[in-house]
Amino acid sequence: MLIQFTNSGIYCKQADVYIDPWKPVNKAIITHAHSDHARWGSKHYLAHTDSEFILRYRLGNISLETLSYNQSVQINGVNISLHPAGHIIGSAQVRLEYKGEIWVVSGDYKVKSDGYTVPFEPVKCQHFITESTFGLPVYNFPDVSDLNVQLNEWVAENAAQGLNSLLIGYALGKAQRILSALETDQPILLHSTIYNTNEALGFDNSRYIKFTQDFKKEQLNPGIVLATGSVIGNPWLRRFDPYKLAFCSGWMQLRGARRRRNADKGFIMSDHADWHSLNDAVLATGAQNIYVTHGYKSVYAKWLREKYQLNAVEVETLFEGESIENESTETKEEIREENQQA
């Protein structure tokens, strides 16, 4: 077998490379820059071109080689290429081929286009390693265009009542999606983690206000605040009173998740594949062997075995999956900085 699951991560012995290793290794291929996939300490990194700045921003001065989508490299006879995963900017599926044996490591992915990230492309293979963050049939995400309409209606409604709109989402990926979706003249204030992430991505910040200690309420009057989950429960929020609070996450599909967080609104905006997309993606690879990682692993693997007679197994990894409150792309310093401001 070309790929093994080891204590350090997903390993290709022939090429001596790891994919998204969770321990420091010699050579690491990184599917995307979320911190449960891109960890520091490895000697050499390989990733997609669009991940370069954000990886350097997060991991510091690393030895990094980049590839564009569909471009390949040879390592000890293994043909390695990256393909769009549609998850966040620069996210890639890793394809490895050696003597006719083909593996694809999906990393995190979403199939439906978000209008911002390069869309997912299915890649034929015999062995497919898939995520299963939302691998339950209750997760069926709405159309992105409907969602964007709802989002814009909501911020306009709040403004009409003189309320600020507070949106909570990941700094890397979700924030840029939300900003691209907003069609409004309202002032938009960014939490500094998001502002800095934009900067690292080369995402145009000129239209936005960066939150600083000098912020005055009148700068919004009313407007939109985009922040990460770290601000929840923090007095930082109070300076935006009166406001309505919305979370942007796939977890918002469930009422309980919304209510527990006391959200006024939940936008089911996910960067992962929903149930039907997962099934479509798995089938499109033509693979007979499916390895299910983070999410509802055992349920989803059982479903694939029963429904499609695939050779599906669950695989233990250290990928954390998505949670609303703790996005791990933020550095500790940034959280501390933000709290001091509060």
Partner: peptide, 14 residues
């Protein structure tokens, strides 16, 4: 399948 319904119900809770 029914088991998947039950597993889903467990997660959703309602």
């Amino acid at each position: 399948p029914y088991w998947l319904f039950e597993d889903s119900y467990d997660v959703v809770g309602d």
